[in-house]
Amino acid sequence: MKKIEDERILIEKRKINSRAFSYVFIGLWLILIYRQFILEQEPSNYWDILVLTLGISTYVLIRNVFKGLYQTYREKESKRKNILIGGIVGSIIFTLIHGFFSDYNLSSSKDIVRILISGIIFFITWMGAQNYLVRKSEKKADEEIEE
């Protein structure tokens, strides 16, 4: 009889590796945030970590999309809700960071309007990108289905 591999061991090992990766991934983002907003370093001081973090993030995103796993396992309503909440939370964080850490004068109504407009542009871009990625991923997921 053909021998099989012990799947439980493989699954457990993958879980450990996956958990370790998640910690490193979160750690990298925290390091970037700390260096940028607390130490106020220039990107030239941490470009290596920046490239690594963005590279890994892009890899995870692209692999998910091309494997047809990007949001495709969710139900339609839950998918919409998830994307919308992500967009709103992301835009609020972007607007706050943009407002507090850029050279805007928060007592000037002109600057406040600028910050709000940048937040709205971020939200629209985010939703557009999400919509594109979900459609692409759904198309890929459908390609895998055999009639």
């Binding site: 021998k3 012990d6 439980r8």
Partner: peptide
Amino acid sequence: INVTRQTISLIEAGKYNPS
């Protein structure tokens, strides 16, 4: 079947769902 004793034990105990 080339697995560990723990795997068999966990399946029998209902603590692991085999493929």
